[in-house]
Each structure stands twice: as structure tokens, then as C-alpha cells.
Nucleic acid binder design. Structure first.
Ligand SMILES: [Zn+2]
Length: 495
DNA sequence: TATGCCGGGAC
DNA sequence: GTCCCGGCATA
């Protein structure tokens, strides 16, 4: 209602953003990767063999170099990463005693080595990937997956289920710790810096507590399953790419569009996932901010019932996005949703669509930033579905998330390829939702309550979430998600 | 009253 | 299959 988000946008202008972003992001990515490579460096700390590791650890040192760039990266953030590392690092001793010159050299060397070592596409081809989400001519193959075994970075994003996973579950796995942080973060919706900081802490905690846990933020924007490790970046991502502009409202809205989750997945799942992840193979559009590569740790386990995740506060602030929040509201967010009642809805995650991939906010988006992508989305919603990736993980185990069989359509060159270079996949989830909902789910429901016709039409109360209607207002109906326009259950802002 | 959306129907 | 809308439940 409050109309559009006026100000702020300029500062976040896509162009510039990308620029500095690349620097910072890359760095961050680096750091993260290092961590990935060996969870919680500080923790591992085994005295002996640490050569390589040491080297790696030094990197963070070099990383900060760029921290000055963005106002974003809070100084403390890098510091945190760095400090402990250096301290714990055996090498640090000699290191400090050396002359500054050599030190620098070392840093540089280390950096170089690292850089060359890292297989991250982001790092290696950051410039390109940043702007050009679409990998190459043939985005089809799983080319992007870095061959390197140690870190599989999906180029910065991982998202399970991709489009379809959006609204879904994986939140289950959020560890208590993480959830906590989530809450905190939510409480301060609009301050990026602060968040970043917390993010840092959070990450640390995560690493520390369990090397296997990883907090990540996934963009819930329809069709954009982007996953970033930093909430700030995610916000930025949402704001820039999806919301298009910023302003008071967008601040809050950002929260709506992403969700935090931490995943851990059995080794087996990892590969599987990656193969399924649409963009992973299609060269996921790293978008402006290549998120740090996210990966699903293999070891873990745990995680219990994900349900725990708390939904911070239903209010707009926290929103659906925040982490596990969503699931909590759902009956059995988990895997097989036996819709005791919610019947259809639960299982078919309301996800929405697909969408907007991170294409650069070119002139196009300027005029109607948010609407653009949204509209696009909506169209996709009804659009066809060239490619279809079917994810049917009937995984009983309460692992990361067991999505119901869902189909994601991946449409590449489809549609205006020029306009949407980065758009590598679009899902007509909405449609699917409608269909499935009416078909599949209904089936389920029926099965559950076979009775002649009892079919309790159960109307679950109105969710607290603001739906398109409320968000955009009637006057901007065209921005509503298709479902809303059709007076169906909103998919963009599912309860 | 405004909103969300089920159920049904037109095309 | 897509799209719309009557009408009811809810806030
Ligand atoms: Zn909607």
C-alpha cells in the first residue's frame, strides 16, 4: 500500500552495485570457500599438517583488502574471519615477525595461489558471471559445477528445488542456533550493515557449532532460487533484482523474498541435488552477486525436526521468508505432507514462480522494476515448460527436505532471450500449482478422506501473510501473482 | 468491509 | 488449459 519504494534505489543501482560487489563478493566467496574446504578452520586446528590450510587461512587476511570497498561489508565482518584465523594459525608467528614487505608478498602469493586453486567459477570468471548469468551458449550441461571435488560451488548459489523449492522446506534443517540468529536478523529488517555483521557472527557460529551446518539465504522470488550466504547480499539481491528499487517498503519486502535455511545433506544427496538444481547445471545465473557457494555439507545429520524453526514473528517484518518460518506454519512441512486437512495446499508448496532471474536491471527494469520481473513471472506462470526437471525425492529421511515430487520447468532460450539473458530457468509453478493442486492434491485429499463426499471443504483461515492484493493493492492488480488474479490461493506470498 | 480463495464455469 | 468471478469464510 505504501506505494513504491522511492529512494534508496539509486544507491543500489545495479551497475555500480555490481561493480563493487564483485570485489567484495568475490572476497567473501573466497573466504567462504575456504571454509567450505575445511569447515571451521579455527576449529580444525589440529596442530600438525596444516600447510595448505595455513595458506588458506592466510587468505582471509588478504581478503579484507577490499573490505573498504563497499560500505556494506562491515569492517568487523572480515575481521572476525580474519582475526581468529591469524591467531590460531601457526604461521602467524613468523608471519608477524617478518618484514611488512615480505608479508605483503606472502599475502599476494597466497592470494594468487588460492585464486588459481579455487575452482569457483565465480572467482575465475567473476566479471563475466557477474553480469552474465548465463554461462555460455550451452547452458544446458552441468558445466558450471566446478569439477573440483572439494568445493562444489554452484557458482554461488545452490538452491535446491530451484524454483520449486522456494517456499519450501529445507528450512527444516535449520539448527537451533541458526534459527536464533534468524530471529535476530529479522528484528532489524532494514539495516544491512547490522545484518551483515550478524551474518558474520552467524556464520561463525554455524561453522563452529557444526561444521556441517550452513546458513544460507534463498531468494524466494518466483523463479529465482538464488542462494546467498549473506542476508545482506540476499537483501540486496532481492532489492536490486526483484524489487527493483528501494525504499521504506522494500526494506520490509526484502524479507519476504528470501528465506534462510541451513542445510545439511547426506552425501548422497549432494550430487543428486546438484544435478537437479536447475541452475546449477544451466549455469546458474550468479547474478550480480555471486553468492558464495553454498553447499550441503555432507556429514551432518541431525537436525531434527526441522519444524522447530520458529517463525519469528508473523508480522510483516519477519515474514515468510525468514528461514524456517514458513514451514512451521504448515502442518507437516516436511516431506510427505499428509494433508490431514490442509489438504492440497501443504503439499503443493505454494511456490511461485519462477522467475526473474537475475538479469541485470537494465534499462528495462528501470521503468517498472518490480513489476517487470513480476509480470514476467506471472507470464511464466502460464508459460509453457520446455524443460522439465523432475525432482522426486521421496526421501523418508528427515533430511534437508523432502519435496514432494515437483516439476520444475527449465526454460532456457525460451522467451526473449535477449531481455533475459540470465534467466535460465523459469518455472511455471504457479500453473503447476494450480493443476497439481486441483489434481494431485485433490487426489491425496480424496484418498485421505474417502467418504462419499464429505470432502470437508475446509477453508483454512486466512493466513497472516500479506497477499498480493494487499501488497500491491487493487490498483496494481497486474502485479499480483496469477493465482491472486484468478482469485486463487496466492502463490507469491503463501502462508 | 476488505481480503483470501474455493468452486464452478465460460472460453 | 486459461481466465474469470460468485460467493463464502475470515479478519
Ligand atoms: Zn499472490
Amino acid at each position: 500500500m505504501a506505494t513504491k519504494r522511492p529512494g534508496e534505489k539509486s544507491s543500489l543501482a545495479a551497475g555500480p552495485t555490481d561493480t563493487w560487489q564483485s570485489g567484495a563478493e568475490v572476497q567473501e566467496t573466497l573466504v567462504y570457500m575456504l571454509c567450505c574446504g575445511q569447515e571451521a578452520p579455527n576449529m580444525t586446528e589440529s596442530n600438525g599438517h596444516r600447510n595448505i590450510m595455513n595458506r588458506n587461512h592466510q587468505v582471509p587476511v588478504f581478503v579484507p583488502r577490499g573490505r573498504t570497498e563497499g560500505g556494506w561489508t562491515h569492517p568487523s565482518a572480515p575481521q572476525q574471519t580474519t582475526t581468529p584465523t591469524v591467531a590460531s594459525c601457526p604461521v602467524s608467528a613468523p608471519y608477524s615477525s617478518r618484514s611488512p614487505g615480505s608479508v605483503e608478498m606472502d599475502e599476494i602469493m597466497a592470494a594468487m595461489v588460492l585464486t588459481s586453486m579455487s575452482c569457483s567459477p565465480v572467482v575465475q570468471s567473476s566479471p563475466q558471471s557477474l553480469n552474465d548469468p548465463v554461462p555460455g551458449p550451452s547452458s544446458g550441461g552441468g558445466d558450471m559445477e566446478c569439477g573440483g571435488g572439494d568445493m562444489e560451488c554452484g557458482g554461488g548459489e545452490l538452491s535446491d528445488s530451484g524454483s520449486s523449492g522456494y517456499w519450501s522446506w529445507d528450512h527444516d534443517n535449520v539448527s537451533p542456533v541458526l534459527s536464533l540468529s534468524v530471529i535476530e536478523m529479522d528484528s532489524s529488517p532494514d539495516d544491512g550493515l547490522h545484518t551483515e555483521l550478524e551474518q558474520g557472527v552467524e556464520l561463525n557460529v554455524a561453522k563452529r557449532s557444526k561444521s556441517s551446518f550452513r546458513g544460507a539465504y534463498r531468494c524466494l522470488w518466483p523463479s529465482c532460487g538464488k542462494v546467498l550466504t549473506s542476508s545482506v547480499r540476499m537483501k540486496r539481491h532481492v532489492r536490486v533484482l526483484h524489487l527493483g528499487s528501494g525504499s521504506e517498503q522494500s526494506h520490509r519486502e526484502e524479507d519476504f523474498y528470501y528465506t534462510k535455511f541451513s542445510c545439511k545433506a547426506p552425501p548422497a544427496l549432494v550430487p543428486a541435488l546438484s544435478s537437479h538444481v536447475p541452475w546449477a547445471s544451466c549455469g546458474s545465473p550468479p547474478g550480480p552477486g555471486p553468492g558464495s557457494c553454498l553447499q550441503i555439507p555432507s556429514s551432518t545429520s541431525s537436525s531434527p525436526s526441522g519444524s522447530g524453526s520458529s517463525r519469528p514473528s508473523s508480522g510483516p517484518g519477519s515474514t515468510p521468508g525468514s528461514g524456517s518460518s514458513r514451514p512451521s506454519s504448515r502442518p507437516s512441512s516436511g516431506p510427505v505432507s499428509t494433508p490431514g486437512s490442509g489438504s492440497s495446499r501443504p503439499s503443493s508448496r505454494p511456490s511461485s514462480g519462477p522467475g526473474s532471474a537475475p538479469d541485470q536491471p537494465s534499462p528495462l527494469s528501470q521503468s517498472a522494476p518490480s513489476s517487470f520481473s513480476q509480470i514476467q513471472t506471472d507470464h511464466l506462470y502460464q508459460a509453457c515448460t520446455p524443460l522439465q526437471v523432475t525432482m522426486s525425492c521421496h526421501n523418508p529421511a528427515p533430511c534437508c527436505w523432502t519435496p514432494p515430487p515437483l516439476t520444475v520447468s527449465n526454460q532456457h532460450s525460451h522467451h526473449n532471450s535477449q531481455v533475459v539473458r540470465g534467466r535460465c530457468r523459469s518455472v511455471s509453478i504457479g500453473e503447476q500449482w494450480l493443476q497439481q493442486n486441483s489434481a494431485t492434491n485433490r487426489l491425496t485429499t480424496t484418498r485421505a478422506a474417502s467418504p462419499s463426499r464429505s470432502h470437508c471443504s475446509f477453508r483454512k483461515g486466512r493466513g497472516e501473510a500479506k497477499k498480493c492484493r494487499k501488497v500491491y493493492g487493487v490498483e496494481r492488480k497486474e502485479q499480483w501473482c496469477t493465482a491472486c488474479r484468478w482469485k486463487k490461493a496466492c502463490q507469491r506470498f503463501p502462508d
